[in-house]
Design a protein around this nucleic acid. Structure first.
Length: 695
DNA sequence: CTAGGGTTAG
């Protein structure tokens, strides 16, 4: 059969054909081998210098990604015209790389023997290629050629140039091209709306949109709505968001997937996750991007469990994840401390070859650091060739989280010498690292150099970091002086930081001052009452503690319940204070009893009922109830082999008693205990914590 | 020629 088929094919190739029949067959070809065969027939029939069939064949070869074949066909052709050149440039841009398209374009221009005289179509192909390469020189030269060629008022080229300048980071030039256009259509304006949004010029992006809505210029179309949504989302402008949503409904775009996706992202960023979810349910055919938007929406709003289960649902719907999906899931893993899920995702990344994506690799570093594997995070960091500012920031803050201040400092200086641009977040990360490691001098130096050498004016978060550095180190007087020196209102976060420092250093006087400011500026926040009450308790001022709690109670405030998570054999177990709901509760409490005995022998002193004589019954119970941290640790000890590291995650800051107890437990059991709390990591080993009690 | 989704700090 096969032999017979081959004979027929060969025979067919000797049938002479006309140009029209060749053109017809070329456009009908459905496989690359058809095309190759037709090429052979063209040569056999003497069509090698026919421009129409050669152009068609080149075009079709690019359709099948036969780049080499197409290229050699082109260059063996003696006198290509503009159209054939356009086919080559366009084909290279979409098949091979924008770079080779630009290179081909340049070569063609240099071949003076051919009168190329690139037309507006050529520019419409080559300008986007230059834009995606981000080559400034090529870009500016192309703009010059457009002016010389007299194509300035061409709307296609105008839009391409505007987009090019945005991608080159020259929004001033984009604006200039836009302003000088004699006539504007929707595409041109849309290019401006989206470009301004991508350049973080959110208000300006919305400004162009508003003008279109008010009837000044071309009418708003579907793309306009889609393009303006990211800017609205970034500003978290819910009012405008609702306006845009209404407009979309009015114009009939309400069921358009991209519009709905943009709205989902908008509502997620505004914290309106219910609305986002509602819209997600309205999408007829969910595509990859809409799944991603919803997954990321959940992850951003702390609904990490929901994010992970939607990820699973997405895979069951036979939609394959891409690097964007992976990034959101890794961010959820990092928040959850879900190392085993994170490792599984890492496997997925390797098998899908997503490693080279910088968002993915940065999110991986962050995940490993936040899940306790700082060594693995660093190993990955070293293997990344194209690190950006965010990558460095993630690694520096990872070290900070683990209390490795010196490593963080070393990396910070390496970052400076690497020439990577520093950002405000870089300074927040390194200042936090200093505060978590008690590096006061170093922190002060960096704070000074931030303004002096790098031109960053400190914002309130940086000031809060400095207060934290001084406060944690016990320099409460200096911290107060520092606050005095801040121009204007220092702001709530600063006082809250100071209050936290008072907790560590049991300074009731400064604490009272800070808490007064806080109760005044943010009376509905239970956190400050809890903190103040804990400060009184740790100073053994139980009536004071009880009083603060009573005030909070009268104001009907409730505390976020503390809970601790531990993963055993890839299964999560969550404990609350005084929890008896776990099936192994009896064994867990027995283990705690046993541990208490051993810890006391080693010198541990727990708060006892007798020391709480001035406290009301209800308060007493709260104070001596077995905290979730201890339950999780005891369960971990029972469920793992001796010597295994215990990893726990707490949603709030670990309390003083549990911190001390964990140190003792690590000694008497000879186990390493790693505790991730709301602030940082604590690694307890042989009676010592890695935080050096700077918690 | 334009359009929706992603990483770091708090």
């Amino acid at each position: 059969m096969a032999a017979a088929g081959a004979v027929t094919t060969v025979a067919a190739s000797y049938v002479p054909r006309t140009r029209d029949s060749f053109l017809h067959l070329l456009s009908k070809a459905v496989t690359l081998s058809h095309l190759t065969e037709l090429h052979a027939q063209l040569l056999h029939n003497g069509f090698q210098s026919d421009i129409a069939t050669t152009t068609k064949l080149t075009h079709r070869l690019f359709d099948f990604s036969a780049v080499h074949h197409a290229r050699s066909l082109f260059f063996s052709f003696p006198e290509p015209d503009r159209f054939l050149c356009n086919v080559l440039v366009k084909g290279l841009a979409s098949n091979e790389s924008p770079r080779s398209a630009i290179a081909a374009f340049k070569r063609l221009r240099e071949r003076k023997s051919i009168d190329l005289g690139p037309d507006n179509f050529t520019y419409a192909f080559v300008i986007p290629a230059a834009a995606s390469v981000g080559d400034v020189k090529v870009g500016i030269s192309l703009h010059g050629q457009v002016i010389v060629g007299g194509f300035c008022s061409d709307l296609f080229i105008g839009s391409a140039l505007i987009d090019l300048y945005f991608k080159l980071g020259r929004d001033d030039m984009a604006r200039k091209v836009f302003d000088e256009m004699p006539e504007r259509d929707a595409v041109l304006c849309n290019t401006m709306v989206s470009g301004l949004g991508r350049s973080s010029r959110f208000e300006d992006s919305i400004g162009i949109f508003r003008r279109m809505v008010s009837g000044d210029g071309p009418k708003v179309d579907c793309t306009t709505v889609i393009s303006v949504l990211p800017a609205v989302a970034e500003l978290q402008d819910m009012r405008l968001g609702l306006e845009v949503h209404c407009l979309a409904i009015k114009l009939g775009f309400y069921s358009h997937v991209s519009v709905l996706t943009g709205l989902i992202s908008l509502y997620s960023k505004c914290g309106a996750i219910r609305s986002a979810n509602l819209l997600f349910g309205q999408i007829g055919r969910r595509d990859l991007i809409s799944w991603n938007a919803m997954i990321s929406g959940y992850a951003q709003n702390g609904l990490t469990e929901a994010a992970v289960s939607l990820f699973q649902e997405m895979q069951m719907s036979n939609v394959s994840p891409n690097p964007v999906t992976i990034t959101s899931i890794l961010s959820a893993c990092a928040q959850l401390g879900a190392l085993s899920l994170g490792q599984w995702v890492h496997g997925l990344i390797k098998s899908n070859k997503f490693d080279s994506n910088i968002y993915v690799s940065t999110a991986l570093i962050d995940m490993y650091a936040k899940c306790g594997s700082i060594v693995e995070a660093r190993r990955l960091f070293e293997s990344i060739p194209n690190k950006n500012d965010v990558t460095w920031n993630a690694m520096i803050s990872g070290y900070g989280l683990h209390g490795h201040g010196q490593e963080a400092l070393k990396l910070f200086h390496e970052m400076v010498s690497s020439g990577t641009p520093l950002t405000r977040i870089t300074f927040l990360s390194i200042l936090h690292a200093c505060s978590h490691s008690g590096l006061v001098k170093e922190g002060e130096q960096i704070f000074k150099s931030m303004k002096r050498d790098h031109g960053f004016e400190p914002i309130s978060e940086h000031n809060a970091c400095m207060v934290d550095i001084l406060g944690r180190a016990g320099k409460l007087k200096e911290a107060l002086d520092f606050i005095e020196g801040i121009p204007g209102d220092p702001g709530t976060p600063i006082w809250s930081t100071l209050l936290g420092a008072c907790m560590v250093h049991k300074d009731t006087n400064v604490a009272r001052m800070a808490s007064e400011k806080l109760f005044e500026s943010d009376p509905g926040n239970m956190g400050y009452y809890v903190l103040m009450s804990n400060i009184y308790s740790s100073d053994k001022n139980y009536p004071g503690a009880a009083f603060v709690r009573q005030v909070a109670k009268k104001r009907n405030l409730s505390k976020t319940p503390g809970c601790t998570l531990i993963e055993i054999h890839q299964k999560p177990h969550v404990f609350k204070a005084g929890d008896w709901s776990h099936p192994l509760s009896r064994a867990i409490y027995a283990e705690l009893e046993r541990l208490n005995g051993k810890m006391k022998e080693a010198g541990y002193q727990a708060e006892t009922m007798t020391s709480l004589h001035d406290v009301e019954e209800e308060e007493k119970e709260l104070m001596v109830n077995v905290h979730s941290e201890k339950l999780a640790i005891a369960f971990g000890l029972l469920s793992t082999e001796p010597g295994t590291e215990i990893r726990i995650f707490k949603n709030l800051r670990i309390c003083l008693d549990c911190h001390t107890a964990s140190k003792y437990i690590s000694r008497v059991t000879q186990r390493v205990i790693v505790a991730r709390d709301a602030n940082r990591f604590h690694r307890f080993e042989d009676g010592v914590c890695s935080c050096g009690d700077y918690w």
